[in-house]
Each structure stands twice: as C-alpha cells, then as structure tokens.
Design a protein around this nucleic acid. Structure first.
Lengths: 136, 136
DNA sequence: ATGAGTGCAAAGACTTTGCACTATA
DNA sequence: TATAGTGCAAAGTCTTTGCACTCAT
C-alpha cells in the first residue's frame, strides 16, 4: 500500500507505526471488514486508534464504507479510488466494485428531472455472487 | 393511515393503542425522522416499543429506511409502498421518493454482466433540493 | 382466556472523548 | 522540540433484551 502511505504523507499526516499497521492489515484482508475484525488482528494497537485511522482513511478515499442491507456497516479498501458502486453477496459477503457511466447518467437524469442539484450518490446491489450462485 | 392499520391486521399483528399512536405520529411527520424524534412526540410510549414498532413497520413496507450520507439512519413513511429511490437534501433534510424503470434496468444490467443474481438494490441521491437550491 | 404486545430498567454493542504520554517531521 | 498521534479507560450513543404485567382477539 505504498501509494496509500504516500497519500497520507502528501496530505500532511504523519506516517506512524500504528497507521502503517492498519494499512497493512487492510491490504491483507481481501473482503470488507468491520472495525472489530480489523482490531482483532492488531492486538497491540488501541481500538480508538483503529477507529480514528479508518475514519481518516475514509476521508482520504483510501477506504470506503460499504453499507449492508441490514443497516450494518463494513469497510473496504477502495481499489479504484474513484466513484463506483458495489455488488454485495448476501451469502459469502464478498463485495465487488463496478463503475457504469450509463447508471450514473440515469441517476443524474433523475436529479435533473426533479430540479435537484446532485452532489453525490450511492448505489448498492444485493444478491448472490457468481460463485455462490453456481456452488449452491 | 387506515391502509397501514389494515396491513397490520391482515398480517396477523394486533392493532394496539401504542401501535396506533406510532402510526399516527409517523403520518403527521412530513419528513424523515429518527427514532429519537418519534419517541419524543410519544412520551407515554416506551422507547423500546417505538423501536419494535418501527422495525415491524419496516418489515411490512409501511416505513422505509433512509440511509444518510454520514452513515446515520432515518425512517420515512413509504408513500408508494413500492420499490423506489430517494433524493436526499443535505440542506433541509427533505427526502423525495422517485421510481425510474430505466435506472432499475441499468442496475439489473450491471448485475447480469457480473453474473450476479440480484435480490435487491438501493440508490440514494444526495444534494440540494429545488427549493434549497433556489433559496440560497 | 391466552398469548401477543408493552413498559421499564438493565444490559449490550459500538463509537467517541479526555488526558497524559510518545514519537514523527 | 513542537505538536500530531497514541493508548487507555471512561463516557456517550443508540438499540436490544428480560420479565412481569396488560389487553386485543
């Protein structure tokens, strides 16, 4: 996660051992995680620091929030760093990012129709991913 | 909210005074509300009951969850009772529902492309509503 | 009359804050 | 070395649960 550490430094934040550890932990997790899970893997790092770091990483778009259907929240490393949407598997919990200009266009169209000044939007798709669909 | 009371009864739930009160309170609020706000207006009804009732009403699609950009949650009476999306004003907090088959189609298209079996989806639009846009 | 529903208070889960200490830039 | 960042524990939020009581059907 070299680019992430750079982004931290570039923004004027200090690159500390705990922050490195959190970044490494996030890099090694290949699925959306909760603060709890992240914190478990970092026994030497205070829980508050994990919370603070994830919050910071969210602001820097290094990590993004993944809202689950039941209202709970997970986080995931932002692979694209750009705007995207999620495919969230209700079986295995995997999260896939995707971008689609025509989806964004449809959203913008609706905003325009309602004389609404769009600042941002989210779209989450819930269901079963390919492998869970074919396995069961 | 006659149809709501009917929906409660039809589903086998009892129509109690607290539930009526919660339904009336929701009917009289014209904006998305928090449990806190709802509960404040119902001093004689236990907080737990408000939570339990709102949860029940969500299951019956009488009330829908409105996730805000900052991760907090509000609820709103489902006007359509059908699938829809939200336009959420970051200034006045108003929430407008809308439906758009072509938006849904774009979402379904993405699911199909990813071999993802779509069960449900959400789309939330954040920005400034018409009146907040023209007023300021 | 009988079991769904309620109120209260207590317990839980999750997150933030205060503060003295540490370590980066 | 000056100050951002940390750890710990305490304090908040917000929500759920246990349990005896009540009331709709």
């Amino acid at each position: 996660m070299t680019d992430s550490t750079e982004r931290l430094e570039d923004t004027g934040y200090r690159l500390t051992a705990p922050r490195r550890a959190v970044l490494d932990a996030i890099a090694s997790i290949n699925r959306p995680f909760t603060i709890e899970e992240l914190s478990e893997g970092l026994p030497n790092i205070g829980r508050a620091t994990v919370f603070r770091t994830v919050k910071l990483l969210q602001e820097l778009d290094i990590v993004c929030r993944v809202p689950l259907e039941d209202g709970s929240v997970r986080y995931e490393r932002s692979r694209s760093g750009r705007h995207h949407h999620h495919l969230i598997c209700s079986v295995c919990g995997s999260v896939t990012e995707f971008s689609d200009p025509s989806l964004d266009a449809a959203i913008e169209q609706n905003a325009t129709s309602a004389s609404f000044e769009l600042e941002s939007h989210s779209a989450e798709l819930y269901g079963r991913c390919d492998s869970c669909r074919t396995t069961s």
